[in-house]
Design a protein around this nucleic acid. Sequence first.
DNA 1: TCAATATACATCGATCCCGAGGTTTAAAAA
DNA 2: TTTTTAAACCTCGGGATCGATGTATATTGA
Lengths: 184, 184
Amino acid sequence: MAILGFLRDFPLHGYDLKNRVASLAGHVRPVADGTLYPTIKKLEDAQCLTRRTAPGSVAAPRHMLEITQTGTDQLRRWLRDPEPGFITDDNKWYVLLAFLHHLENPREQALVLTRRREFLDQPAQLFFDANGTPIPPEQLDSPFRKGLMQIHRSTNLTEIEWLDRQVADLNRKAGYAVRQRSGG
Amino acid sequence: MAILGFLRDFPLHGYDLKNRVASLAGHVRPVADGTLYPTIKKLEDAQCLTRRTAPGSVAAPRHMLEITQTGTDQLRRWLRDPEPGFITDDNKWYVLLAFLHHLENPREQALVLTRRREFLDQPAQLFFDANGTPIPPEQLDSPFRKGLMQIHRSTNLTEIEWLDRQVADLNRKAGYAVRQRSGG
DNA sequence: TCAATATACATCGATCCCGAGGTTTAAAAA
DNA sequence: TTTTTAAACCTCGGGATCGATGTATATTGA
């Protein structure tokens, strides 16, 4: 998703792509060569991108990659109907968010944000005693577990507030677009 | 790490472990059977845990798992000197944090928190233009990328504050322990 | 009585991903 | 001039993980 998402902005070569993905997921981990290049090849085989060789600006020749219509469609499908992991895994979610603007319909964007919003609404029960009863944060012995739950709650609230503002914005935009189309 | 970490609290059977790991990493993804059971077997082969069959409370018999001294040592090694991914990947970091109290030396705990603190100090450059120049958040076109960077900054600050408080606490504790031992 | 459900464990093939190694090219440094 | 460094790409082996599938057992409910 990140490959097609970045290529949607402008054509890039593999090495550049690698650095951008690593920076985006920077606080996660860089992507390995052994992951990136086979994935590029797979996307090429699937006609999601085209490749043309260009002289390297400083060294070896590079393969400039360009997204195709098929690739754009694929990207939009991934964004419009993301797999569960992209909603529930913070790392994946942030990657999705970085390219959500490529889904051009504000109503569709709002739908994705709403899925995340609903997920964040679920109360987080992280730790349980020997009987399986959830332990509330203030009863935890470990200060690290306490902090973990505090941080989790606080960052969730921050994101929820942002999500609500965005969804409201997008709905206004979608409503406005409808009124425009229907001549209102 | 999560398996041994949970078993360090009290003995558990595989099914229970599965649910606890899924809840801990709840906002990430549940662990698959095909991952959990082979891992348990590997840990058993490595003498990190022992297994004894007990009648199932409601259904099929269960294998109660208990951590061994070898397992405890292994867990502590992982916690004391975590692989880079455990510092830089939020998901992994939170798992580590959930078990850091099993590293009983406050000085060692503080060292791990400091590694995370140093990592969070690095300024996050997430997006670049076609030339490779970093784009500041206020110049981003996509509201989603803007929000991404805002949320990232805000949650980082929250965690940094907490880390600083903890490290200060732990250092006081460590200092106190030294004074105790030296009869001061 | 029979099916459905939840508990509890296990295996297997496919796939994902990493990391190590290796190649080519051009610029910079020695 | 030779070596080193950095850009740029690629492959291969192996380990981690998933998802599908299968087994056994006890409870619930139709």
